Amino acid sequence: MFRRAAFGLPTASLVILGVFAGPALAEPPEPPSTTTARTELAALTVAAPHSMDGYARDKFGIWASQPDGCTTRQDVLARDGHNVQDQANSCQPSGSWYSAYDDKTVTVVADATIDHMVPLAEAWRSGADTWTADQRKAFGNDLNDPQLLIASESSNSSKSDSGPADWKPANHAFWCTYGKDYTHIKAVWKLTTTDDEKTALSSMIDTCTN
């Protein structure tokens, strides 16, 4: 597998909400254990969604340039692909990419979208509206937590800005990981939840076998 050493944003902007985002992993971050996920879910603060006034995707700085000269999107493609090869050092890899949302494999790089596990709009209405520009940029380009993943165009479009109360992966086998990862992102970034979202996350974590 082709690998780059991606190092996220400058250190000064990455000590955020008590989380240090150091060097990105060479493989996608592992989901937390089921026990940890249940503990994190129970600790999430339930609150009414914030207003979407002032929201814009570009306020999250995607896709930021990384120290390796590539963008966050390109580093995720290099990190998460199969049989990935660099194209003449252009940062644009070739290979294949698995979309866990719908259990499909994408072989054309342009069709391999990068999804935010917790959508940017959902982050905005659950607390990111109060963050600094650096905090939002770090969230939008988070290479260290299970926030960025490959998704087919159709599954990404279907999900859009929805959270688990309104959308779930067509691939039921991914529900366990989705529930744990989504919960973990909200916990790490101290984002709020709703009763409906919490119920949906709990039901998906219930599908875990361990």
Score class of each variant (00 low, 15 high):
2 F>H: 10
4 R>P: 00
5 A>M: 08
5 A>W: 06
8 G>Q: 07
24 A>Y: 11
29 P>R: 08
32 P>K: 00
43 A>Y: 06
48 A>E: 09
49 P>E: 02
52 M>S: 15
52 M>D: 09
53 D>G: 02
57 R>H: 12
59 K>L: 14
62 I>V: 05
64 A>R: 11
66 Q>A: 04
69 G>D: 06
72 T>L: 04
82 H>V: 10
84 V>M: 02
88 A>M: 06
92 Q>C: 01
93 P>E: 00
98 Y>P: 01
101 Y>A: 09
101 Y>T: 04
105 T>V: 15
121 A>F: 05
125 R>E: 13
126 S>A: 09
132 T>G: 08
135 Q>M: 15
137 K>C: 04
139 F>K: 01
140 G>S: 12
142 D>R: 00
143 L>Y: 11
145 D>T: 15
147 Q>L: 12
154 S>A: 14
155 S>H: 05
155 S>V: 14
157 S>D: 04
158 S>H: 05
162 S>W: 05
163 G>R: 13
168 K>P: 00
170 A>G: 15
173 A>S: 14
173 A>M: 03
175 W>L: 08
177 T>D: 09
179 G>F: 06
188 V>P: 00
194 T>N: 05
195 D>S: 13
196 D>V: 10
196 D>A: 15
201 L>R: 06
201 L>E: 09
203 S>E: 15
203 S>A: 15
204 M>Q: 07
207 T>K: 13
